[in-house]
Design a protein around this nucleic acid. Sequence first.
DNA 1: CTTGACCTTGACGCAGCGTCAACCCCGCAC
DNA 2: GTGCGGGGTTGACGCTGCGTCAAGGTCAAG
Lengths: 265, 265
Amino acid sequence: MLTISQLAAYAGVTVRAVRHYHHIGLLTEPSRDGSGYRTYDAGDVVRLIRIRTLAQAGVPLARVQELLAATPEEFGDAVDQIDAALRAQVRELQEHRRRIARLATGDSLALPAEVLPYLEKLRASGAPEPMVEGERDAWILMAARWPERIPEFMGDKMAQLDDPRMVRLNRLIGELLEVGMDEGRLTAMADLLAEMAEQSAQRGELDRQRDQLGDDAFVALLDAFAFDAHPMVERLQELMAERGWTGWIRIERAAETGPAPESRP
Amino acid sequence: MLTISQLAAYAGVTVRAVRHYHHIGLLTEPSRDGSGYRTYDAGDVVRLIRIRTLAQAGVPLARVQELLAATPEEFGDAVDQIDAALRAQVRELQEHRRRIARLATGDSLALPAEVLPYLEKLRASGAPEPMVEGERDAWILMAARWPERIPEFMGDKMAQLDDPRMVRLNRLIGELLEVGMDEGRLTAMADLLAEMAEQSAQRGELDRQRDQLGDDAFVALLDAFAFDAHPMVERLQELMAERGWTGWIRIERAAETGPAPESRP
DNA sequence: CTTGACCTTGACGCAGCGTCAACCCCGCAC
DNA sequence: GTGCGGGGTTGACGCTGCGTCAAGGTCAAG
């Protein structure tokens, strides 16, 4: 007759595991001696070794019973199923490894590869670091919303950076961040923005943009994001409104100029 | 401003996951609106996407904070660690797959490969099925206790089966199982056993066996196992005792014949 | 006013045990 | 007899990352 620790030692498992198997009904509770100790025999050791063998092969405990009582065919089928599950888990982990291998630095975290060159170019053009970070976060959002359109968007943005007015604009933003809100610079920025918007409109780019960014709520979210980033955005929107433009992420010609005469009931 | 489900949708996670992240402090609780609803903004979406990205790459949630705030070097180190952990998990699963692939049938469960041919030969020699199963279970125990000596033991057992007396013995066991306890057959069996034991002793095999089976408690366990299997074992032990032999699994010459005269105090 | 969809907190469930906690039991040295 | 160390017993929480009720309050629409 064996105690629980002897049983566990012969079978090569822990005492806690044996009690767990009792608890889940995988091993029937043996009889007790006078002082309440469980008493096992060699047959219990054999049963426990069988269980251990299956468990160590990755069989879920919930299926061990079934396998122990299975015919060879059932056993084979079950083994196939379990192996398939193990394969799936391996694939999942491999997928994790692939993903983690691509998380090189903090900058590229959650950012599609196409965006990195753009951010670099932006930085190189003299854009201030806070702005680059803001852009980065905005592109994280864009990538989550429209992952498949990122290359398209990026093409446009890279081209924009070839426009000297855009470079000038980014420099002005940097200066504003340093010296604080400056009405002169803000006016200059609004003029630049309005000029570029006008040109974009003539080329039909604004229409295309409206098609691309078809989710009003999402655009509003990005606009609010920009608003939160710096007060200059709010002031610039006012100045742009005076010039007949509305919106920020998705810029559009304002419906009416002046204090909307249609607002009568 | 976003509700929790909008936040979750933009970030591509479940509402429950967001609450979980709040719970474990991975995401700070946002402010609430008048009716207690959580209100989020675009920055929260970005943070959540970052978390999701790491989580989907297999980073444990407990380390996500740390990684989000890490410098590139720290990040690289942590990624290496996590990848090592993932590799270890993959290896473990592959090991499971290897093990499960070898669990072909119920017979070979927990049984080393060397034992299968022996059991087959035993079966072929006319041994009854219950006895084969008993032997199988006994070898499961032996393999758990002395895995490295199984080939050695098996060599001896295979040779034993070449002895016609052993075959005759197994047949007698089969007959006993069918007709019930039969004193004539039991006597014949005891004679056979005693004869073979005598021969083993003369060849020095019993001494070798005593060295191999050096664990008294374990031998007692196997003996008890045999006892439980069938009453014939008990009767056979008595008959063997009359012939000067003791033990079952590890057979030995009895110290004294007759009613032990040394048992006086 | 009623739906139905969302929101809230709270709590259990899962897999397979590890790890206390608090208490009983046994054999042995003193 | 007594103390000690090393067994045993049940009970319950911890870990991972949420899924899934449960039992409500809220919001927008019909």
